[in-house]
Each structure stands twice: as C-alpha cells, then as structure tokens.
Design a protein around this nucleic acid. Structure first.
Lengths: 203, 203
DNA sequence: TGTTCTTTTGACCAATCGGTCAAGAACACG
DNA sequence: CGTGTTCTTGACCGATTGGTCAAAAGAACA
C-alpha cells in the first residue's frame, strides 16, 4: 500500500510524473473531458500503473486541486499591512502576473473548475479564500480610510486583479491571435497593468 | 433532409431547443466533457431525435460557436469614432458587462473553447477578431494622440475590458462565494468598473 | 545466490460513448 | 377521408471509458 508521503525514489518520481501529466490534460480538457489513457500517455506509463499510484481519476484531480489551493493564494497572503499601500498592491499585481507566466496550467485548471461550477472547490472558496479576502479587504479599507489610497471597493479591487492577471494566462491563445506575432502578451501586460493600477489607486 | 434555415415550426422549435440544451451543457463541461445523452435530456428529446436535426455532436458545437462569433463582437463594433472618447469606451464597458449579465452561458462557452486552445475558433480569432481589434485600436490611438484620452496601449485596453467583464460572468460562482450572500457581483461591478476606467482614461 | 517486497503490464470487464437503422407515430394537404 | 411526408424512438453497434486482476518483471537485502 502506498502511503500519502511517497517513500521510495520511484514512488516520488512516478507520482510527480502522473500529477504533471494530469495537470497537462485536466487544464486543457477539464475533469470530464480528460481520460486516464491521455494522462497515461502523457506520463509515459501504462494505465494500470497510474492506478497503482492513484486509486482513481478523481483522486489525481483532487490532489492537483489541493496542491493548487495551497500555493494559489500566496501572493495575496504576502500583502503586507505595514508596507506602502500603493506599492504593496502593485507588488501583488506583479506577483500574480508572475504566477500567470510561471504556472499557466494551474491557472487553467482553476478556471476549468470554476467554469464547471466549482463542484470540488466550493467549500474551499467559501472557507479559506473568503476568510483571506475578508482579512485583506479590511487592510485595504484601512489604507483608503487613512487617505493613503484612493477610495475603492477593496473586494472588487482584488477581483479585478484576479481577472486581469489570470486572463493573460487563461486566454493566452486568443491574445496571441489578436496581437499577432512579435508580441508577448504577458510581457506587455506588466507595464500596462502597472499604469492602470497606479492611476486607480494613487490618492 | 433538413436544410440550413429551418422551414417548419417544429424544426425551428426543436433546433432551437437543442441549441439551448447544447449551450447549457457545453458551457459547463466543454466539448469533450459534454455528452449527447446529457444534451438530449436537457432538450427533453430522445438521442436519435437530436441526430435527426444535427448530424453530429460537433455540428451542434460548431453552430453554437458560429452564432456566438456573430454577436459577441457587436459591443466593440459599436464603438463610434465620432463620439466622445471616454464616454464611448465607458459605454463599451457597460455593453460588455451587460452581455456578461444576459449571456453568461455564451461567455463560458467561449472561455471553454479558448482554454482548450481554441481548436475550432483560432482562424476566426486571427481573422475577423484581429481585424476588428486592429481597426478599433487605431481609433483609440487617434483619440490618445489628439489628447482626448490618456495615453494608453489600445490593444491592452481592449484586452483589459474583456478580462474584467468576462470574469464577472465566467467566475460568478467564485465571486459569489467570496463576496458572501447579499452581494450581486455583476451589479456591484458596474460602479467599480466605471470608476476604474474613468481614472485610467481621463486625460 | 535466493527470497521477499515493490513495481509494471497485458488481458479483460461492465458501463458509457457517439452514432445508425428500421419501423412506427404524427402531421400536412388533397 | 387517404396518402405522402415529416417527425420520433427503441433497439442496436463498435469504440472508448474508468477500473480490475493475476501474473510477470525489477529492486532490495540477506
């Protein structure tokens, strides 16, 4: 029986390989659209071997979502109430945009889950995520009240940062088609988003 | 043989019912995740009857995407080079947000297609969409050059309008979870987005 | 070396998939 | 009414689905 923290080198390598393959397939096809055969091919492994390491297709998916939730909110957690308000928020935008650049598959996995109605994530959204947003919204509200930030709805500010940064990961194909060759959407986004949020937030 | 423009009342009613059911299912599950049985149940019709009106699952999907492309860009097409720049762009934001409110399923259908890499839409994106964006970008650039608009990258301005307005449709489940009961994300978005784009665009 | 535990896979299973077909039911129109 | 057309569906098909199992192949350690 394979326990939760993989013990041997082979276990560690194979579970990681499966999760990587699962991320690749789930992020493109969604849970229902993905098949174990696709994941097995991507992981260069036979299908029964997949199921030696994970008991089911859903187990792979759930593991990926759990891992995602652990790191996805780090950029927002790092928002420091003691720092300079505008600079803190711009740094948050930069960190989130960096995640779109480094982890586009994770971003699409998340988007797919939400599009399906978040059947396996709703409790996490209503729990940890809401708590974190409530907490950071209070910080932002405090900054606004103190006149160190333009008055702005803190929750919708956070939402707009999500929308803009994640869009550059999830809709990358569309943006490349529209911008044409010779353009790097994510690179150009950095300057544009800094301009946008500077104007919005500077008191 | 059923021709393209449905002739009889029954044909019109049933094709419409199928497309509506297909929209419901495809927008949640994506193309691969959706099944003809689900669509048939949703349309209250037997599966062979579906296939009497559409030759295949893909034909339903393609028809939906074609219809979508015809209306999806209307808000941007309506951007009037002769109007007041800031007001024209704010009106565009309002129209796009209204589409998120009225047609969330169409928005999710589009998002699903892009997340999968736009296999059935890429040519349309590189064609009609790019042409339209190029044209309207020139208008916006002209406004900026004339000093009637803050200097801003026109293409990324359009992209940011897409990102923000579509996010309120596609991620509605998440936003409701985060905002908690008693909040209507799309309603609150209107004021927030107006504030955001007014600040960004006013010279 | 032999023995034990871990890892791998070909063959297989029931359920579901997209799609077909023939035959019946409902309709339109003289 | 009758008759030709349109509409509907139960039964079915081969392929694919998620998942099982037994047996073989590899590692690990004595």
């Amino acid at each position: 029986m394979n326990l939760h923290p993989p013990r041997t080198r082979i276990q560690r390598k194979n579970t990681e390989s499966i999760l990587n393959a699962g991320l690749e397939v789930f992020s493109r096809q969604g849970f229902r659209g993905a098949t174990l055969d696709q994941i097995a091919v991507e992981a260069e492994m036979s299908k029964p071997n997949l199921l030696y390491y994970f008991p089911s297709k859903e187990a792979i998916h759930v593991t990926l979502l759990d891992r995602l939730m652990q790191t996805w909110l780090d950029p927002l957690r790092a928002l420091d109430a003691g720092g300079d308000p505008v600079e803190e928020l711009l740094a948050y935008v930069r960190r989130k945009l960096q995640m779109s650049r480094d982890y586009p598959r994770e971003s699409r996995l998340f988007a797919n889950e939400i599009l399906q109605g978040a059947p396996r994530m709703l409790t996490a959204l209503e729990g940890d995520l809401k708590t974190l947003v409530d907490e950071k919204s209070a910080v932002i509200q405090g900054w606004s009240d103190a006149g160190k930030l333009a008055p702005v709805d803190p929750r919708h500010l956070i939402i707009s940062i999500w929308a803009l940064t994640q869009h550059y990961a999830d809709f990358d194909v569309q943006l490349r088609a529209v911008l044409g060759p010779g353009h790097d959407p994510l690179q150009e986004a950095e300057g544009y988003l800094e301009q946008l949020f500077k104007k919005l937030l500077t008191p």
